[in-house]
Amino acid sequence: MLKQRWDTIGIWAVLLFMPAPILIVAAASFSHDGYIQFPAGELSLRWYGEFLTDARWLRALLVSLGLAIAGAVLSTAAAFLAALAVTRRQSAFTRYFEVAVMTPLLFPHAALGVAMLSLLMMIGGYGTFAGLLLVHCIITLPYAYRPISVSLRKLDREMEEASMSMGARNWYTFWHVTLPLVRPGIITALLFSFILSFDEVTVTMFLVGPFITTLPVETYSFIQESGTPVVAAISTVLVVITLLLVILLERLVGLEFFVEPDRK
């Protein structure tokens, strides 16, 4: 009885606490003054108007979307190819590789930001789209690698063997047997790295230049400069894009991946 009540309280705490700041920003974005007031002020869409008519924001939005799409595709492709090579044959090298590919996760983001800045200073690409893209690929690679390697490990090799023993060519087997079976892993990797890249700010803020910036970084600088409530409208747009992708992920493959155990 008592336990049941605690469970309910716990659930309600999650329901209220976790999305609260996001919901409050969304509510503020529709108010005329951009702040929540008691009693409620008048409603307006003026902040959305300001967002959509300012080239500064639209350019940053386009950069963010382009970066997230290209970054997700490239790092998922790199992760998929590597996972194919590694999960097929276990050796000392592959074990080192699996540890190495996860190492960037042990880096505090601020340190990662400085490291990436020193990299771009050395090889060129500071303040360019290509430079940002390279860095986003480096930081999303571990997130793309994990779901793919999990689904490749779960893959029943006998399915491939059956296909090949019935005379199917390698490419046919790959395209019609292997690929469909690891599709959940690939979709998770794509969407997960898209979201991470689209919302990334701590590393990216070291790398943006005067000619290129992303929407989260531009929003951050804007909050520091003046911070008119147009921020609330932009935030709401960022939340809606993330929400749509999370729902897509849930519908396509489910969210169970996030609570998969680390080791088998």
Binding site: V25, F198, D199, V201, L238
Partner: peptide, 12 residues
């Protein structure tokens, strides 16, 4: 409810 706030940008 846990994953959405987790993935929304830190700035937001």
């Amino acid at each position: 409810l846990i994953i959405l706030p987790w993935l929304v940008s830190i700035v937001v």
